[in-house]
């Protein structure tokens, strides 16, 4: 039973530490994303189901190795307790050995060797067993989460009918569940956007934004997969799973964030 749903963006730069030093726009986005998780818990969710685009539809274990080394080779887990001068120049002082090497896993148990909700390192792991970026971003919001969580990849190319099935299956779980959907709008909103300008992008994003803001599951289900693919909308399949999971009742939508700080449309919206 779904008690609340939220959608958050899933760009690689939202993975902790991947921007290197702090980036104001990213901090703002992540703040809204954290608020969305809180909203799910406030609705009485006893588990969190994270849904995000993946190469193929499949579940991942909660401590699946993350994709950080593929996205940002040489990346290190951020040192949150590293001291540095106010201007940030001298981030040189070292952390005691073993600091932050242990964190809460799903359900609050201790997961050795994972930082934040960061999972194991991915060295030597087959690429299909690495968590997709979307799910890794979702998981990164769940450090310290008091309820268990599951990670579900949805094939980015899944047709609408399959998304409908997957969404309806999610609804059937016995426990009150919060759905955390990781999805992005178009990456072709302007000439400076990562995918350059596609004239259809702005209109398509506007339809997505309106559907999210009105908790209009039907409108999300009507999104055309081919049009979304052309406009580099990375969230279509995940949103259609969300819509199918939530189409059985009306929801109150709250838009916590709606911006495109780097040329890609991001939303943080809760349905409660």
């Amino acid at each position: 039973m779904i008690v609340a749903a939220a959608t958050v963006p899933g760009a690689p730069l939202l993975l902790p530490g991947v921007t290197g030093g702090p980036v104001r726009e990213v901090a703002k986005t992540r703040e809204a994303m954290a608020a969305a998780v809180t909203a799910l818990l406030d609705q009485g969710a006893e588990e969190i189901v994270v849904v995000g685009g993946a190469p193929a539809t499949r579940p991942f274990p909660p401590d699946a190795p993350g994709p950080e080394q593929r996205v940002a080779p040489g990346w290190r887990r951020p040192h949150h307790d590293r001291r540095s001068a106010p201007d940030g120049r001298r981030g040189d002082e070292v952390l005691p050995e073993g600091a932050s090497s242990e964190v809460s896993g799903p359900g609050g148990e201790r997961v050795p060797g994972s930082a934040g909700a960061g999972g194991r390192d991915g060295a030597g792991v087959a690429v299909e067993d690495l968590l997709p970026v979307s799910l890794a971003v979702g998981r990164s919001l769940l450090g310290g989460c008091p309820v268990p969580w599951t990670l579900r990849g949805v094939g980015r190319d899944e047709p609408r009918d399959r998304c409908l099935e997957l969404g309806r299956e999610l609804r059937e779980g016995g426990r009150p569940a919060g759905l955390l959907v990781v999805a992005d709008g178009s990456a072709r909103r302007s000439e400076k956007a990562p995918g350059h300008l596609d004239p259809s992008a702005i209109g398509l994003d506007a339809r997505i934004g309106a559907a999210l803001a009105a908790a209009d599951a039907g409108a999300l289900l009507r999104l055309d997969p081919a049009a979304c693919e052309r406009a580099l909308v990375a969230g279509r399949a995940a949103w259609q799973v969300m819509a199918a999971a939530c189409e059985d009742r009306p929801w109150q939508a709250q838009v916590l964030y709606e911006e495109d700080p780097f040329g890609v449309a991001y939303w943080v919206v809760t349905w409660t």
């Binding site: 730069l13 290197g20 702090p22 890609v264």
Partner: peptide, 25 residues
């Protein structure tokens, strides 16, 4: 000298880039 040391440190991976978003949005 600071700039050179920082750039080498970032390249060696002992210091994170100051701010990187290119290709990561």
């Amino acid at each position: 000298t600071r700039q050179v040391l920082d750039m080498v440190a970032v390249t060696r991976g002992v210091r994170p880039p100051a701010r990187t978003v290119r290709g990561l949005a």
